[in-house]
Write a protein that binds this DNA or RNA. Structure first.
Length: 647
RNA sequence: GUCAGGGUAGCUCAGCUGGUUAGAGCACUGGUCUCAUAAGCCGGGGGUCGGGGGUUCGAGUCCCCCCUCUGACACCA
């Protein structure tokens, strides 16, 4: 059986963090286990390197874009190599073969009639140089900013007929209930599609760092939209559009993604594949995010978990175990040293590591390290049967991406071992001269450890190799067959003494994340709105008089109330010392309650053209700073006279 | 606001189509063995199953209302 497993290709606008490591660990686990059971396995990961953001980031550092991409991409690859990730290919969207494949796909879509050239058509206000959606327009189709009449304006773009695939997608979700995991995510996707799919603009003319549309179109100012480019990597990696040698691996068995990019993988991607007449992947698994000590990780808080650092202090495989055991797939998880240490001590040291040590100790004392399984079934059929009952169910959990359940169940095998030792107390039997029984128990536990190690191999490849070595066997496909499928026992073997696998950890080994927030220049990551034109910015510098075109004033909030039917808006009446109050509608309800604002001073952009929000006129804007942790208003340090000019 | 999914022991969660004293792991605690990494094993405490009402012989499990959390979408000059 062929088994193709993918991670997303990671965007090279920042270095790898623990979330990237998590996805990659999961994929690696699936890949390793798949190889172990004898599947022909292909594991793909890589980097996504195109797009305006990369172009701009490189420019800022005054580096050639390609060089910038090379550097960041290398940090990912190096990390995976350090972590011994068993990928079969590391693809980069700047690989010429990938780009060729994407162009081939584009041509096929054109031939299929799924791509057409058209225009963005929108209500455009010439003086504001902005498109406005219908819903924002004032009465009579006037601009919500300046109140002038808008005109319908067109801008050239190629579009993918996503709308055509609305029904086929719904049918597919219906027919394949396991296509999207976990199920809760599936509902979200379905409700999104139900809301109606618009054709997707798949080319840009505003930047050049991307895959050009095929030469056959003779339209070289168009560059492909990053998502079309990026998603195609899953098939171009197998040779789509150039050398199709590995296309036999398609469709993928498991495509892992973060919950933030599920929509692209569960809607756009299947639609693209349908257009290309390719089968759809068997399942898309969307995992959650990681927090740290209950708080969202962010650069500004300085509490981002560096996987390299954790691995350095605690070990990569312990981290892998922790991440996969701690949190149900799909849910958000919390990383804390406490939780990691608890898992290590209680699961790894106490249950597993100590069990191996018990076997080593007993075999040393009672039989000079030699183990013979001849009498195991004579005394321990119950334990062996119970263990196989558990081992037999494990693959189901793996198939459902229920890693935490998988490990939880697997651990019961160790409990069987620990209980058997207690119950049969080999040390008592030895004293009574019942050596055959005592040695049978030791052999039983050694076999349980062997079998469990085989099933744990995907999660902890190195550790299980060490256990296997201590037990005198190797973790191979053949042994998987023998020990798990055929339920055989290892026969005669010799124990090798190894130091404790998991020394207990008493104190945190890493410096704790800073608790207090450190004020730092808050970054406001702008989300890329796919169908909007990007605001053209020149060199980014303005003259002082340009700044003073903005009238900033101190105002006092006199009244504040929540806007019904909105979760973000507050309607404020602000006194700017003008005799009349200004009505300002601000999107800060999630961060400030209405009553907490009344009587406080704020900074107001006073000469903003009025806008209409949820049907209400807003005559100004509050200054606020927002980063990934929240939003705070900008206020005068000390109260000033209402209407005071800022600047 | 619309839609979806939650609220069960200190913590993280199981509890399928309603049925005897509501479960697991961790944490806490009492006991005990000694092969072992002060690990293991046995036992214990602790929950009015978010609140209220209803259906039923019987509800954590079904229905209604409310509170609250999460997510998607809308919205965020």
């Amino acid at each position: 059986m062929k088994n193709y497993i993918t991670t997303p290709i990671y965007y090279v606008n920042g270095e790898a963090h623990i979330g990237h490591a998590y996805t990659t660990f999961i994929a690696d686990t699936l890949a390793r286990h798949s190889r172990l059971v004898g599947n022909e396995t292909y594991f793909l990961t890589g980097t996504d390197e195109h797009g305006q953001k990369i172009e701009e980031a490189a420019k800022k550092l005054e580096k050639p874009t390609q060089q910038f991409a090379d550097e960041i991409s290398a940090t990912f690859k190096n990390l995976w190599d350090e972590f011994d990730i068993s990928y079969d290919q590391f693809i980069r969207t700047t690989d010429p073969k990938h780009m060729q494949g994407v162009q081939a796909a584009f041509e096929k879509m054109v031939a299929k009639g799924d791509i057409y050239k058209d225009f963005y058509e929108g209500n455009y206000c010439v003086s504001c140089e902005t498109f406005f959606p219908e819903s924002q327009l004032m009465d009579g189709g006037c601009c919500p900013d300046c109140g002038r009449a808008t005109t319908i304006v067109k801008e050239e773009s190629y579009f993918f007929r996503l709308s055509k695939y609305e029904q086929p997608l719904m049918d597919y979700y219906e027919a394949h209930s396991d296509f999207i995991l976990p199920k809760s995510r599936k509902n979200e996707v379905i409700s999104f599609v139900k809301g109606g799919l618009h054709d997707l603009s798949v080319t840009r003319t505003s930047f050049t760092w991307g895959v050009p549309v095929p030469a056959s179109l003779n339209d070289n100012k168009h560059v492909m939209y990053v998502w079309l480019d990026a998603l195609m990597n899953y098939v171009t990696a197998l040779g789509y559009g150039h050398d199709e040698a590995k296309m036999g691996f398609w469709p993928a068995n498991t495509q892992l993604v973060g919950k933030d990019i599920l929509r692209f993988h569960a809607i756009y991607w299947p639609a693209f594949l349908m257009s290309l007449d390719l089968p759809l992947p068997k399942r898309i698994g969307a995992h959650g995010w990681w927090t740290r000590d209950g708080e969202k990780m962010s650069k500004s808080k300085g509490n981002v978990v560096d996987p390299r650092e954790v691995a350095h202090h605690y070990g990569v495989e312990n981290l892998r175990y922790f991440m996969m055991r701690e949190v149900p797939f799909g849910q958000d998880g919390d990383f804390s040293q406490r939780a990691l240490i608890d898992r290590m001590n209680s699961d790894l040291s106490n249950d597993l590591g100590n069990l191996l040590n018990r076997v080593i100790g007993m075999s040393e004392k009672y039989s000079d390290f030699s183990i013979d399984s001849v009498n195991v079934l004579k005394y321990h059929t119950k334990e062996i049967e119970d263990a196989h009952a558990i081992l037999g169910t494990l693959e189901t959990y793996l198939n459902d991406l229920q890693f935490h359940r998988y490990l939880e169940e697997l651990w019961k095998v160790f409990t069987i071992g620990n209980k058997a030792i207690e119950e049969h107390a080999p040390w008592v039997k030895i004293k009574e001269g019942r050596n055959e029984e005592a040695l049978a128990t030791v052999a039983l536990v050694a076999n349980l450890l062997a079998k469990a190690s085989v099933m744990l191999h995907g999660v902890m490849p190195k550790t299980t190799a060490t256990i296997a070595d201590a037990l005198g066997f190797e973790i191979t496909t053949q042994n998987y067959q023998e020990l798990i499928i055929n339920k055989k026992l290892l026969q005669l073997f010799t124990i090798k003494k190894v130091p404790p696998l998991f020394p207990r950890v008493d104190e945190p080994l890493m410096q704790e994340a800073p608790k207090a927030m450190i004020e730092e220049a808050p970054k406001a990551p702008k989300e890329e709105k796919s169908l909007k034109t990007e605001a053209p910015s020149a060199d980014g510098l303005i003259a002082i008089d340009q700044f003073f075109q903005t009238s900033l004033k101190i105002g006092m909030v006199v009244e504040a109330e929540e806007v019904p039917k909105s979760s973000k808006l507050l309607k404020l009446q602000v006194d700017l010392g003008e005799g009349t109050l200004r009505q300002i509608v601000a999107g800060i309800r999630e961060h400030y309650s209405a009553e907490s604002l009344i009587g406080t001073q704020v900074c107001v952009v006073a000469n903003l053209k009025p806008a209409k929000l949820m049907g209400m006129v807003s005559e100004g804007m509050l200054l606020a700073a927002k980063d990934s942790d929240g939003l705070s208003l900008i206020r005068p340090e000390k109260p000033r006279v209402i209407g005071s000019v800022i600047g």
